[in-house]
Amino acid sequence: MKTIIGLISGGGDIGRTRVFWIGFGVIVLLFLLYPTQTSAFRVSNVSYYLLNIPLGLGMALLWGYCGVLSFGHVAYFGIAGYTYGVIAGNMTENPLGPLAGVAGGLLASAFIAGIFGYFVFYARVQKWIIPILTLVLTLLLETFLGQTAGYQWRIGSVLLGGYNGMTGIPWFQLGGFVFEGYSFYYLCLFVVLACYFSLRMLVNSNFGQVIVAIREDEVRTELLGYDIRARQWVVFVLSAMLAGLSGLLYVQWGNYITPSQVGLLQAALPVIWAAVGGTTSLLAVVISAFTLNWVTYTLSSQGNQYAMVIIGTLLVVTMLFFPRGIVVMVAERLGRLTTRRTAPSKP
């Protein structure tokens, strides 16, 4: 137990003081109570903001901690979502269908990422090429899925649906209990907290220290005896599974998925969430993914056509004035203020 607490509260992420954890607990409590104070519609919207967080966390882990930028992680979001739709959609009579869909979706995203990552990392592809390759993969996937209109493009009884997408995807259920509405909100909250705490433990472990060392200097790390290719591959697959997890929650939330979910616009979003929050902090990306999803969704649902322009502008402002991310830099400033206040005054 001591080890787990030590790993969670280690120095791999911002927020280690007692005050931080009290504040964290209060915010979690507010999230737990939120559904009792608002409408089902709003709860559903917040579920959407929450379900995107694992995708953002995967980006933080891969880019911020391991130094590898993927511009196409939504491909794994889409692969998991479509796989779930196909499996669960073909097993509608079976209560285990959604669970099989979840397992299939995660395995599919891990499998494709595993093959892709193997060629990228074991061939020692230069870092600046990786974002291009990952983007190409997701755009290929979008193009492929876009031309799957027609009855001939079906797997079992499930139609892929071309640009109209796959519809009628079943809710997630465990045994006879179906997760929809409020229960789905709590499922999303649970998944986000589980991912966050697991990743905090990971980045504070020996493995986490080594991936940060790889980010800092690949050659130095290799000459300390580490197979950096294997570790980059593991992180890549893990982050793809996190993207897949978001894809699974997305199709369970909306019961549909379209190829635009793996398109250029969607591909840019997790990169923006990570950059705006600060790539080197998991918590920063959680905050930024939630907030930016809220901003985008709210603006879009009010008919504002400029949602993406505003998000893009925010990215430019961040790059210019907050190069390490807004949340990270604010946290650093707060940390310095606290230290100054608690430091003994000079005689």
Binding site: V212, E216, D217
Partner: peptide
């Protein structure tokens, strides 16, 4: 590793 602490530099290997 210039951005890491002395402790981390001596722990990683």
């Amino acid at each position: 590793f210039h951005d890491l602490s002395v402790r981390e530099n001596l722990t990683i290997p």
